[in-house]
Design a protein around this nucleic acid. Structure first.
Lengths: 228, 228
DNA sequence: GAAATAGTGTCTATTAGACAGTATTCT
DNA sequence: AGAATACTGTCTAATAGACACTATTTC
């Protein structure tokens, strides 16, 4: 093909909530460049493969799960010199998952683990390539979309309680939210969540009703990120 | 480079408002594939060129202007077969501009013109590649971002009246907005727009005050898209 | 009973939406 | 004067935020 060419990769910002805190999935690179550093899971897009297909493939390789995980395109990065191997353009994807347990290391990775977002965002984890910026962009996207969408349910299992959903907002935004007003807002928006009829008891206290996500995906007016 | 490779292009969804209606910039393709069809302005990303740099270069080639135009990355498209020449991944950008007058045709284009968005969105203009979908995505992005951001000012010259700004919303959303409530919302949000002190008379009626965009870029609560 | 969590009710300050009314220009 | 547009003020229904209270469980 007589056209300018580059390599195209996908990289995944996979977020989940563990122990009431936001975590991001990182792999330890086993090969150069940046061997030993932590990086976003990802890899090359194969010929005749769609970008979303490549993202789902990499997601399944690292987490062992492909269904029930929210995946959306984040942004594409192609600054010259971002990869020492040459002209590499990467399409970054944002994935939001319920707590999946420990990840499986991929082929090129020495290991994989969930890192607390606080540590990563503060620069306490050395990241390869321009992945620190990609993580920051993914975090900001997630935070912004929680305000006006039902995206928070992507962090929850299929059936969840209002308290679980509230814990998502508190973990992603790093704030505390009044449980009573949150309950009223979430259950009072028709179609946002639907009661399943079941209940679940978490230790002491009145058992909570279970909900599943509804068909309404936008929240108007949005929830606002207030101070802690 | 022993890695999978593809060609990377940028394509631009350039929107403007002419005659109180939203328009999109299209070029008539002069070469195969899709010679004679209309397409988004764009081209190949050069080696050692950043994606944003390529987008600005193409924008300047088509419009003759590069400064004062809002440009943001839209989405990347890479479905197999989207380009008959081979594996071509395109990074689409959304550009919003004040009325620029007639465009200049680029090198590969037989002609360039502003098309009414109504005609393009309704499928009345034959578009090359997957560009119809890209235009639709760009339109939806623009419509959504007007709600909660000061993006509408990107369609206006540096100094504008409240009525001009309102005309942007009406053109992009295809609705009519109460001028009095709009005025109160826009001028009542501190830092959203700032009066320049000047006024301008447009035909009959009291002269309107001029504003420039302020430093506040988010609108909370957002404006809502109501019915006409 | 005490403690803990779930869920409901009430009050208030704010505001979106509707629209009457005033101000300033051109013809 | 009359028409047109810019801008301001007022009313009302809705609601976010604050928080008291009730309900249901475990220890």
């Amino acid at each position: 093909m007589p056209l300018p060419s580059a390599s195209v990769t996908v990289d995944l910002v996979v977020l989940t909530i563990r122990d009431r805190a936001l975590h991001v999935l990182l792999v330890e690179r086993g090969v150069e460049p940046f061997a030993g550093a932590w990086a976003l899971p990802g890899g090359f897009v194969l010929d005749d493969e769609d970008l979303a297909e490549a993202a789902y493939r990499e997601l399944a390789e690292e987490t062992g799960v492909a269904h029930g995980i929210h995946l959306e395109q984040l942004r594409t990065y192609g600054a010259p010199g971002r990869d020492p191997r040459g002209h590499v353009v990467t399409v970054a994807w944002l994935a939001l998952a319920p707590d999946l347990g420990e990840p499986a290391a991929g082929s090129d990775a020495a290991g994989a683990r969930w890192w607390p977002m606080d540590d990563v965002a503060a620069g306490r984890v050395p990241l390869a390539f321009d992945h620190a910026g990609i993580v920051a962009d993914g975090l900001e996207r997630a935070r912004a979309k929680l305000e006006y969408s039902s995206l928070a349910t992507a962090f929850c299992p299929p059936e969840f309680t209002v308290a679980q959903l509230r814990a998502v907002y508190e973990a992603v935004w790093g704030v505390s939210i009044d449980p009573r007003n949150f309950h009223r807002k979430v259950t009072g928006t028709p179609g946002f969540v639907e009661p399943t009829g079941g209940t679940v008891a978490e230790g002491a206290g009145r058992p909570a009703r279970l909900f599943r996500r509804g068909h309404v995906t936008t929240l108007v007016p949005p929830l606002t990120r207030a101070e802690p």
